[in-house]
Simulated assay, not measured.
Amino acid sequence: MGRPEILRATPAQAGALTALMHASAAYQGDYASILDGYAVTPAYIAGNPTFAAMAGDELLGFYSLLEDPPELDILFVADAAQGLGLGARLIAHMLREARARGMRDVRVVSHPPALPFYLRMGARRTGTIPAAPPKVRWDRPELRFDVPTG
């Protein structure tokens, strides 16, 4: 696997992004309900800055940044690419994109097991989003990334 390139995702990649998300081991078992019926659509990609990490034709990860208010809406790294630094590269890319768009900070509502990752990446914990059964049966950490200015 070569060094992935992070490129703006295209609406034509919606199916591949959705498949990568649904294949994630992090969202199996107890956490599977949050993704039930969820799909990244072409309209979503067209309307929100969404970036894909590609090694040739292979999709290894992606993220999506909401602009108003600023929020890291989706971040996934393929199971086979975890532990290789790709998540950190996606976060660094997201922060550069946020700065280019004039954002001062970026909110994250985290998957509970991903909390240590976001803290390592420099996010600060700001609260907890309560469970919203039946789809989301667990509390979720809320964090913020401060966007570097220079």
Rank of each mutant, 00 (worst) to 15 (best):
residue 102 G to N: 07
residue 148 P to Q: 07
residue 112 P to L: 10
residue 139 D to S: 04
residue 132 A to W: 00
residue 86 L to Q: 12
residue 143 L to R: 01
residue 140 R to L: 08
residue 133 P to M: 11
residue 120 R to P: 10
residue 95 L to H: 00
residue 88 A to I: 02
residue 103 M to Y: 11
residue 124 R to A: 08
residue 91 I to M: 01
residue 107 R to S: 08
residue 129 I to C: 14
residue 87 G to N: 01
residue 113 P to Q: 13
residue 140 R to V: 04
residue 148 P to H: 10
residue 128 T to I: 12
residue 109 V to L: 11
residue 105 D to M: 13
residue 145 F to A: 10
residue 148 P to F: 03
residue 149 T to V: 09
residue 146 D to C: 00
residue 137 R to A: 07
residue 91 I to E: 00
residue 141 P to Y: 10
residue 106 V to P: 14
residue 145 F to M: 10
residue 131 A to Y: 13
residue 96 R to D: 03
residue 115 L to H: 14
residue 134 P to L: 01
residue 88 A to T: 15
residue 142 E to D: 15
residue 116 P to T: 10
residue 125 R to N: 10
residue 98 A to R: 05
residue 123 A to E: 05
residue 102 G to E: 14
residue 144 R to N: 12
residue 112 P to A: 09
residue 132 A to Y: 04
residue 126 T to S: 14
residue 106 V to F: 07
residue 106 V to Y: 10
residue 97 E to A: 05
residue 87 G to L: 05
residue 107 R to N: 11
residue 147 V to W: 06
residue 121 M to N: 02
residue 86 L to M: 09
residue 97 E to Q: 11
residue 111 H to L: 05
residue 138 W to K: 03
residue 107 R to M: 11
residue 126 T to A: 04
residue 97 E to L: 04
residue 98 A to V: 09
residue 116 P to L: 15
residue 143 L to V: 03
residue 133 P to V: 06
residue 132 A to C: 15
residue 119 L to E: 10
residue 86 L to P: 08
residue 109 V to T: 09
residue 113 P to L: 12
residue 125 R to P: 10
residue 104 R to P: 02
residue 119 L to Y: 02
residue 97 E to M: 04
